[in-house]
């Protein structure tokens, strides 16, 4: 958490993504045109969010058995950091949708379910704020989080595939993986995902460290 090398690695990967993602060649596809490059910027936001929410659910489970306050703080701060990436993903998705589907928000199943899964995590934060007693708060919110996580996975990856979604990879629409994620795009897409996951994890560690200092000062 305090080491520097992975922070530098994340920074380098993200900067590489911005350069290579804009300059390297991409498949020429109708409607998508150059917006296919959004794969390098919009999709990694969701990957970073899912990784952060996975960290959160891991520490929620851990805090139930360890009853440690640190695990509880880790769980809430990774949700806090993950939500930022989720909101960025929603906004970039809406902008992309305006120029490919014609509207910012066309109530596409993928968009709706993504918004609902963000709301699930807003509910988690509100639930936490509603309970004053610390141990009760840790326990109830950990259990809520354990239920919210599979809900989020189902909302993002299962339900949009069953409905008629316009989003690539859903509702009969081929995903980027199947026909146009060629080797050129993979060379940018995978580093982009790793880079943004590292940056997301970094933001989470900063939040966690600030929170634990605040916590220590409160107890003193």
């Amino acid at each position: 958490m305090h080491k520097t090398w992975w922070k530098i690695l994340g920074s380098v990967l993200v900067i590489y993504t911005a350069i290579a993602g804009l300059l390297l060649g991409v498949p020429h596809l109708a409607i998508l045109n150059e917006t296919i490059r959004n794969l390098y910027f919009h999709v990694p936001m969701w990957f970073a969010m899912i990784v952060l929410f996975s960290i959160s659910v891991f520490y929620s489970v851990k805090s139930l058995s360890s009853k440690s306050e640190i695990d509880d703080i880790k769980a809430v701060e990774s949700v806090n950091a993950g939500i930022i990436f989720g909101i960025l993903g929603l906004i970039t998705g809406a902008i992309w949708a305006k120029y490919t589907w014609g509207q910012f928000w066309s109530f596409d199943p993928k968009q709706n379910f993504a918004a609902i899964s963000i709301l699930l995590y807003f509910a988690y934060l509100i639930l936490r704020n509603a309970i004053d007693e610390e141990q009760k708060r840790a326990k109830i919110s950990a259990i809520y989080n354990i239920f919210a996580f599979p809900m989020m996975v189902v909302l993002l990856f299962v339900l949009p595939r069953l409905k008629d979604s316009l989003h690539p990879g859903n509702g009969g629409n081929p995903g980027f993986n199947s026909y146009d994620l060629d080797s050129r795009m993979r060379m940018v897409f995978y580093p982009a995902c790793l880079g943004w996951i590292l940056i997301g994890y970094w933001v989470y560690t900063i939040r966690f460290r600030i929170r634990s200092i605040e916590n220590k000062q409160q107890h003193n």
């Binding site: 060649g25 991409v26 498949p27 020429h28 596809l29 109708a30 045109n33 150059e34």
Partner: peptide
Amino acid sequence: AQDNGVEM
């Protein structure tokens, strides 16, 4: 790199 006439 392929070129199938789509505007890029």
